[in-house]
């Protein structure tokens, strides 16, 4: 559906994107992952025709960018990160305006708005001023406005930044729902975000693609190691080091926090042998206060990927 080849973008002399190529089949939810300034937003802006590429080409169906800008823009729905919708308008009025500019016939717009409003759960706020909306509702209105013309491709730039955990879950569900019958491309710098919603992840760093795989594959590749956090009552650091000596899978023991009674530590295991660790502790008189597998953070993965390159 989307074919990107050797896409390059210079901002003056600064190279923001360096010959990236990828393709997205119909119906896939693709996550662009990367730290700030990696080139995620630039990629999305190029895909939506907001920016012109310095070199390279984008093909969507049979249309090309640059060239068939208007055609491509009409099958894409794009929501920038800051949700810059006109704050001085009323929700319904704004959606109507978008409908008009998207070329939906005037008679059909109200029906279409009601349809989308139901899907995005914004029916109750239709008459509200946009500047009175909370960030979560604003995001919903934003998504509704880009779904209005029933685009085949939906592009969302950091759709969950600045939302509270409940809102994040709601927006994720909404994206997953939309992804059932549309191609979705979203960007994020949060791994769990991408993991929860996407079929595929492309990691961008310094304008280059450094990884391209499904989230689970990526995790396996870069997170073969297991990190376990433990909190023990009544133990001492010496004793702890002693009992873990025999477990050869332990690569590192790091003491995080220590007061009179409790010791917190983080153990890095070359593979998941949590039962061995547990059994070792079980044989001691200490009380196990906490024991959990730590999720490896994106920062760690990034460190790994960027040092590999």
């Amino acid at each position: 559906m989307i074919e990107v080849s050797k896409l390059t973008k210079y901002y003056n002399s600064f190279l923001a994107l360096d010959k990236i190529s990828f393709s997205v089949p119909k119906g896939q939810i693709l996550g662009l992952l990367g730290p700030n300034g990696a080139g995620k937003t630039t990629t999305l802006r190029l895909l939506t025709g907001y920016l012109r590429p310095s070199y390279g080409e984008i093909t969507v169906d049979k249309y090309r960018l640059p060239g068939d800008d208007i055609k491509i823009k009409s099958i894409i729905g794009y929501l920038p990160e800051s949700v810059p919708i006109y704050k001085n308008m009323i929700v319904y009025e704004y959606l109507f305006y978008v409908g008009e500019i998207r070329g939906i016939s005037k008679e059909k717009i109200p029906e279409r708005i009601m349809d989308i409003a139901k899907k995005c759960k914004i029916r109750e706020i239709m008459h509200k001023n946009i500047n009175e909306l909370s960030k979560g509702l604003l995001q919903r209105v934003g998504i509704a406005s880009v779904l209005l013309h029933d685009p085949e491709i939906l592009i969302l730039d950091e759709p969950t930044t600045g939302l509270d955990p409940n809102q994040i879950l709601e927006i994720r569900d909404l994206i997953k729902e939309i992804g059932k019958y549309k191609t979705v491309i979203l960007s994020s710098h949060i791994l769990s975000e991408v993991e929860a919603t996407c079929d595929r992840v492309i990691i961008i760093n310094k304008g280059k693609i450094v990884a391209d795989d499904s989230p689970s594959q990526l995790k396996n590749m870069y997170m073969g190691k297991t990190v376990v956090n433990i909190c023990l009552h009544g133990a001492s650091t010496e004793e702890i080091k002693n009992i873990f000596k025999d477990i050869k899978e332990i690569e590192q023991v790091r003491f995080l926090n220590q007061d009179d009674l409790n010791i917190s530590l983080e153990i890095t295991l070359s593979r998941d042998v949590r039962e061995k660790v547990y059994k070792a502790i079980k044989n001691t008189p200490w009380i196990l206060m906490e024991f959990y597998k730590n999720k490896m953070s994106l920062e760690n993965i990034f460190k790994q990927i960027t040092t590999e390159n």
């Binding site: 802006r45 939506t48 025709g49 907001y50 208007i70 055609k71 823009k73 009409s74 894409i76 794009y78 929501l79 920038p80 810059p84 919708i85 006109y86 978008v98 500019i101 998207r102 070329g103």
Partner: peptide
């Protein structure tokens, strides 16, 4: 909002 405006067809 210019970004949105320009990505409308």
């Amino acid at each position: 909002s210019y970004e949105l405006l320009i990505t409308f067809p």
